[in-house]
């Protein structure tokens, strides 16, 4: 590992541009995430949230810039970089033929851990997956698929957890349990989490940082203190986000 790398820094994104068919969807993204951070990724539909996460997780090649996860460059050492994060895969990308248990065994075998190697809790139990675990994923509802995707992302307790709108389809109890797990992970100071979401009001209570993407660029960023202040007054953070979106729409 490079000696200049901050050991607390789990994700380093520098000047990232990414997109499809040579056309940039996100550009000029600089982002640094330390252990203990929970980042809320906000933005309207088509603002580039999923494209940014695809570039960070190595699903599309950056058009420019670099991504390093836990000190490993994603392009030069993809396998080492990918061992540094757990991604809750989109529910429709899950292997529908496999049962939930087989999917967990698949991911665990790749990560070299046990199929129940979760951070201190039995995630299947906490998320109410036990009655579904032996059934093919094809029979799962959207929310149950999201639960198994989150359970698999947590396997082996990777340093960085990435949830791309995975909380959206969860029932209230499961969403509450996932938030508890996320907060526990971040509080031990060894992990960081990125949550892409449209549930703006949930961000101040869960995240200690937030960024707003608009037209593929970082339009606004909030740090822990700003989020804490905004969280004290009901609706204040949502109002700030809506105002930023309105300004962007007017400029655009």
């Amino acid at each position: 590992m490079d000696s200049s790398i901050d050991p607390a820094e789990i994700l380093a994104v520098r000047g990232l541009s990414a997109g499809y068919a040579g056309r940039a969807v996100v550009s000029g993204i600089d982002l640094s995430l330390d252990r203990g951070d929970i980042l809320g990724l906000l933005g309207a539909n088509g603002s580039g949230k999923s494209t940014l996460l695809r570039a960070i997780t190595g699903q599309i090649r950056p058009l420019g810039g670099t991504v390093a996860i836990d000190g490993a460059d994603l392009v030069r050492a993809p396998e080492r970089a990918k061992s540094g994060f757990g991604l809750a895969v989109d529910p429709f990308d899950l292997p529908a033929a496999l049962s939930g248990r087989q999917y967990l065994q698949l991911v665990a075998s790749i990560r070299g851990c046990a199929e129940d190697d979760w951070p201190g809790v039995d995630v299947t139990d906490r998320l109410g997956l036990n009655r579904w675990i032996e059934r093919p994923i094809a029979e799962y509802s959207l929310g149950t698929r999201a639960k198994i995707a989150i359970a698999a992302a947590l396997l082996g307790t990777p340093p960085l957890l990435i949830l791309d709108e995975s909380l959206n389809g969860l029932d209230p109890l499961a969403a509450f349990e996932v938030k508890r797990i996320i907060l526990a992970l971040a509080s031990n100071g060894r992990h960081a989490v990125i949550i892409s979401t449209h549930v703006v009001e949930a961000v101040p209570g869960l995240c200690n940082r937030a960024i707003l993407l608009a037209d593929g660029r970082m339009a606004r960023a909030w740090h822990a203190r700003q989020l804490a202040e905004a969280g004290q007054m009901p609706g204040a953070f949502e109002a700030e986000v809506m105002q930023a979106l309105a300004v962007q729409a007017a400029d655009g």
Partner: peptide
């Protein structure tokens, strides 16, 4: 069962293997 487990079941679309 070998790493990655259940990959052929997935490839062949065998429901739960």
């Amino acid at each position: 069962r070998s790493t990655p487990a259940w990959l052929s079941s997935w490839a062949w679309d065998l429901p739960a293997g």
